[in-house]
Amino acid sequence: MVNLSRVMVEDEDTMTAPTDEELIIATMAGEESAFAELFQRHKRMAARIAGRFFPRQEQIEDILQAAFCRAYLALNQFQGKQEKSFAAWLSRITANACLDELRRLQRRQEDLFTDMSETDAAQIETRRSTVATTAEQRVISRDLAHKLLAHLKPEDRLMLTLLYEEGWSSEEIGKLLGWSVANVKVRAYNARVKLQRVMEQWQ
């Protein structure tokens, strides 16, 4: 059992912060401050992943809440030597929470952004060649992008987001979704083609 406060006092001279593994052990021993420290360390990373999928702040907060709650309840399953790091483990949990939320939104018809107006169609043609510079343009582009991505399956959207925005490898995505590397590449290709088809329908 690691006493976090004692570690901090003993290492006051060297100011060595406890590692994630030590904080996990202390959390499992019932020390609340250790989990608070883990939250402080990794909340921005988790928020960045959630922000790739959801534009609103409340949605990101909900994902953070779900991800850290799951992580806390599954701390005894974290195997420090086999996992790359706690951050990688937490990022997978966050991605799974995002996938669940995407699936939930897809089931709720009122939250689907699949209905594009004529204005949206015109914006697509404009945004293909130009980069949004102003805040207003960025909002329009974001709304338009979400309408386009709503046509993808949640798994495909998660896969492409992690691939393009988070820089995950095909192996990591395949491990997360239970797919082979070849399947990840094929599905990524098909998802890109599908997006192109959707845009062509509105041009």
């Binding site: 979400h146 987001t161 925005e165 997006l195």
Partner: peptide, 29 residues
């Protein structure tokens, strides 16, 4: 083009930071 779409769909850095620093978030967890 897909990379640009996904980049556009991402929330702004300010919103991500605001969500991470939201008050009472840890208490909610």
């Amino acid at each position: 083009l897909c990379r640009r779409i996904f980049a556009a769909a991402s929330a702004s850095e300010e919103r991500m930071d605001a969500a991470a620093e939201a008050p009472f978030l840890y208490q909610r967890i």
